[in-house]
Nucleic acid binder design. Structure first.
Lengths: 238, 238
DNA sequence: TTTCTTAGCGTATTTTTTACGCTAAGTTTG
DNA sequence: CAAACTTAGCGTAAAAAATACGCTAAGAAA
């Protein structure tokens, strides 16, 4: 019934540099670009494999990571790719089912130098036209899920430095969701939420009025979350 | 690196009988209860396998089906269960990674007689204490996702008959989310949304004022959905 | 006929969202 | 060094949505 199936993970790693959303890609043997990934081993479960791939590529252990979905078209890996996989991993596989994850990381100097070492690239998401196998489909699905999740949970802060300005937060939303944001109403929302707190510090060296730095207080968020359990629970347009 | 892995699907099939949320279970060889599922074949992708399982168990082709997540603990299938799987499917598997789905069906006479034939049971979700392997974990995760999805998209109608009363809809939300609902404000919301339309028919033989029947108009929903693209987009408590 | 139960309408209050005017604090430009 | 430019950040008013809750209506059951 089943011949040699393998299970792999592929990770869509998102980063934000203040201007646009980027995604980590790998150039395999000078061929086409692909997402970082790996076959799973006998001893590990799939989330562990995803964390392993991420640690290897970014050097980070605490990364926001979420399962996207499974990609299982029997023809998703062509003969040539299959040959590469069998050679690289030393297996005899006829089919690879992959579990896709998306990850969010803060783009700082440390991670940039680590990825550079691994011959990985941060590419602007909008400029990615094609990827190996079905990796473009995976990226598209990751983008859709990221948009959705960013509107429903406070994960934007996983992409921003610990201290950020309200403008940076708004710019991130603009970049990911492609929406216009009214500066004044956005501020009100952010400041009023109760868990985004001013640090007292200010921007320096910007060609306009320097903005205050804020931090996301996870602890307070949890508290507010419990309070807010509102019964206006149904909102079908989301 | 990888020995004989298999990939399976397991389906959490939800139904609503007007009183409580039910889940379809199978009694395997007079042993403990489990979710309907199957190993995938070489030729099919995973969604196809899920639809196949569902068609077999319910007789239905058009079922609401959504991927939940992957369960991949190397020890999730014990030796005894592994033995059963290898015997039943005629394979030599050392590990089964499963992709869980949840499905929503309308409990009518047709489906009830079909499942009865297949020796499957509709069990009240709250009364399910333990299941084979990690199937209880799968059920729990399905419940969490169902709650979430029911608040964000109009999937409740997949569980209700085509024509339903506003009370039935409210009862479903009460049963799944465990919330109290104010009859009057709920009606306002439903009637005002623009895509839940009265059929002109009324309940018969109920021991109180008969309620009007409504239908969910998918077409109008899509239209409203586009209009509603509101910029009050961020709501982190969801 | 009374009682019981749910249907279904209406209204007033509060909360949230939206639109938008305006000043403040810096840098850059002429 | 003043004017221009840019983003920060406060405030207010209007609109929309959510909530609380009183009340009548229509049927079956007692």
């Amino acid at each position: 019934m089943q011949t040699n199936h393998s299970v792999s993970v592929d990770c869509v790693v998102f980063g934000f540099d203040g201007r646009s959303l980027k995604c980590l890609l790998i150039k395999r043997d000078g061929q086409d670009l692909k997402l970082p990934g790996s076959l799973i081993t006998d001893q590990e479960d799939i989330p562990s494999a995803a964390y392993r791939v991420l640690a290897e590529m970014t050097g980070l252990r605490d990364v926001f990571l979420k399962e996207l979905s499974v990609f299982s078209d029997p023809a998703r890996v062509g003969d040539k790719d299959l040959e590469w996989i069998n050679h690289f991993y030393g297996v005899q596989t006829t089919r690879v089912v992959t579990v896709a994850y998306y990850a969010l990381v803060k783009l700082d100097n440390k991670i940039m130098s680590h990825t550079l070492e691994k011959e990985a690239f941060w590419k602007e998401v909008v400029s990615i036209t094609s990827l190996a196998m079905d990796h473009k489909d995976i990226l598209n699905k990751a983008l859709a899920m990221l948009s959705r999740d960013m509107t429903h949970s406070p994960i934007a802060f996983e992409l921003l430095p610990r201290k950020f300005t309200i403008r940076e937060l708004a710019d991130l939303y603009k970049a990911v969701l492609g929406v216009e944001i009214d500066n004044r109403n956005f501020r009100k929302k952010i400041i009023g939420c109760g868990y985004i707190l001013p640090t007292g510090e200010k921007e320096k060296g910007v060609a306009h009025k320097p903005a205050a730095y804020y931090v996301f207080d996870k602890h307070r968020y949890r508290k507010e979350e419990k309070k807010t359990r509102k019964l206006n629970f149904i909102n079908w347009n989301e």
